[in-house]
Design a binder for these strands. Structure first.
Lengths: 103, 103
DNA sequence: ACTTACCGTAAGTCATGTCTTACGAACAAG
DNA sequence: CTTGTTCGTAAGACATGACTTACGGTAAGT
């Protein structure tokens, strides 16, 4: 739910691959693991981290659990990034102007 | 320069603290280290990672090096996130509609 | 009821990365 | 030219985390 968790969750390449695979739509765990070079339990562990970070959600469907992207975590990350982006640009513009004053 | 590097760079809490300290404006390494619970070489190593990710830039000023935020890395991260955000919302809306069709 | 499929968790191994201290280089001042 | 800052890099210790195999639990099918 916090942007810190989202950042640490999306840092790992394999976990990012799991996450990006969900862009194609909701998928069960086995389907995800079949197209990845890691074991199925590893996928489950990654999904747990992504879930705790608010990046994915799951619901049961028979014996399988369907995972899909949760906008909450993405939103938190986006808000932080936008806020950072604004202040960074302001500082950048101010610094450019200050440098122009003292050539 | 790539969003992958930006994500892995911003994942570490200490490195994120270094990065966020630069929001206040350009600062030399020693100034950053003075307000952080780690040694000065550690700060240098973090700055190297941030620099390779395109998140900061530096320029010499006498014997010290002034670091400031570089919009490039932030921009790459933002583009990826926005693109992801759009497709995620589309998939979310489509899934909601599909679920509404099959109650 | 029994079997099969699908999944999460626990325990253990192993690699990755973060921190420290020690050292050397570049620049300013005296 | 010597001294004092400021900083980056190298080497090593240490913690964190990612992966595997093994196990138990739940639901569907026969």
């Amino acid at each position: 739910m916090s942007y810190e968790q989202a950042l640490t969750a999306l840092a790992d390449p394999t976990r990012r691959a799991v996450f990006e695979r969900l862009r194609a739509g909701p998928q069960p765990v086995g389907e995800l693991a079949r197209h990845l070079p890691i074991s199925r339990p590893a996928v489950s562990q990654h999904l747990k981290v992504l879930k705790d970070a608010g990046l994915v959600t799951d619901h049961a469907e028979g014996t399988r659990r369907i995972y899909h992207i949760d906008p909450h975590g993405l939103g938190a990350l986006r808000r932080w990034l936008d806020q950072f982006w604004d202040t960074a640009l302001d500082a950048f513009a101010a610094e450019a102007e200050r440098t122009a004053d003292n050539p």
